[in-house]
Design a protein around this nucleic acid. Sequence first.
DNA 1: AGCGGCCATTGATAAACGTCAATGTGCCGG
DNA 2: CCGGCACATTGACGTTTATCAATGGCCGCT
Lengths: 253, 253
Amino acid sequence: MSQAAELSCVCGKSGNCVIYNRSVCAAGSAEDLAQLDRISHQRTYARGSVIQAQGEPCDIVGNIVEGVVKLSSTSVNGDDHIVGLLFPSDFFGRLFAEESRFSYEAATDVTLCTMNKPAFERFLVEHPAIEHEMLKATLDELDAVREWAAITNGHTTMQRVATLLYVFSRRAVNQHAKGNAPASRIVHVPLSRRDIADYLGTTPETLSRNIQMLARSKVIRNINAKHFELLNPAELIRHSGETRADLDRIASV
Amino acid sequence: MSQAAELSCVCGKSGNCVIYNRSVCAAGSAEDLAQLDRISHQRTYARGSVIQAQGEPCDIVGNIVEGVVKLSSTSVNGDDHIVGLLFPSDFFGRLFAEESRFSYEAATDVTLCTMNKPAFERFLVEHPAIEHEMLKATLDELDAVREWAAITNGHTTMQRVATLLYVFSRRAVNQHAKGNAPASRIVHVPLSRRDIADYLGTTPETLSRNIQMLARSKVIRNINAKHFELLNPAELIRHSGETRADLDRIASV
DNA sequence: AGCGGCCATTGATAAACGTCAATGTGCCGG
DNA sequence: CCGGCACATTGACGTTTATCAATGGCCGCT
């Protein structure tokens, strides 16, 4: 998900494809890609709509072309927690299971490249080299989820907020970079405060207070609710409690 | 990891093997299993010893035969957080990566069935059906990690403690069950208070207070530091904030 | 069996955080 | 252009939890 936007996509007409971006198809022939193309098609979902509900049988998988999808778990009490965010080129859906343990919901308006799940599963079984790449990608994802869990588990809210802002700033660079564009100082966080809070395991109020704290100390500047200017990246990194190397690794997963 | 202990093991002389238990080898022939047997051997580690250090090149993988292995991430500040616990029959090690993002450490004395990593990787690539099972197992693990992250993220310490105790009680049932043994009321948690606290994202002090709270309200009884008697399972479930079905699913992963 | 060290528990205190309530701000439709 | 509504911010307060410090109990060692 750190690839530039102009990569061609094998599934559908345009946009990123996780299968390609994650190198899953690096081992696939042109015929394989054409076959994938046949079972895929693009689809859009409005912000807030549920792509796949928790516990429901899941029949589609695919990848994000544009927008952000939140992966969340809703408990019996009604409060739900976001266990992951999916960005353009990320794979979504639960392969090889009857139903999804989590719900996939559009955090922004999204465009997806969807595939029929059984068809894609059959494709994988028939193409071991590609399934091998899928395994590697899943192992990477496992590391990333564990790493994020370690961050949310043991750090203060300020550290989580700083980490998130830095990660989003890096992600934006990757998305906007055409060639060697300079790092943008504008950080775009396309999520609502509630979604961010759910992701960080806190409340909108505490989140807001921490954001304003960073703003008062001139680390960031509020442009509007979803845009920030990064005034002092070094201080942001310091607040995150992580090394710059760790942050960059997290951002590049 | 919810399998009974008497399953035979393909790698080494005795004990559980994740490859078998997770059905990864269900698709493998007898010759395949014999080949696996040739590249594996058992090894023991004393409590506290590091099996694989964070960031170090990793050359072995395998599965837990006996004991508990903690998977932890140590930050620059020195405080480490446990992102996972590995039990008998669980797979350990990071396939298809140069180095491990986390450290594997013996939380108790452990017996491992180890394999040379490159050799096992080659084996997987040559046996797509088994690699397919490996992918399914990894996807299951991903769900489990996310589920645990949702629990530690949004719940109170008491809810986490109750959840952990219940999960360990279920796990003990599975481990001890020979045939249809009745559910044991004795819960064995073979970890130090610090390890439990790290796993739950809290401190030993707060953990201790919550345990004593449960003891005072007659939900559990302290036999000693690592053994508890489950006096009121229904109340424990209530304190966990989860449904019984959810807890049982978590325990069986 | 006695000793010493490590681990668990308990207590006091302060900081961090969630909750409830009110105010402010931006966005969309009339 | 204005009103309404959802969202973000700010404030006050109570609870939870981490931290610091001390005590108590268990286990291994000699």
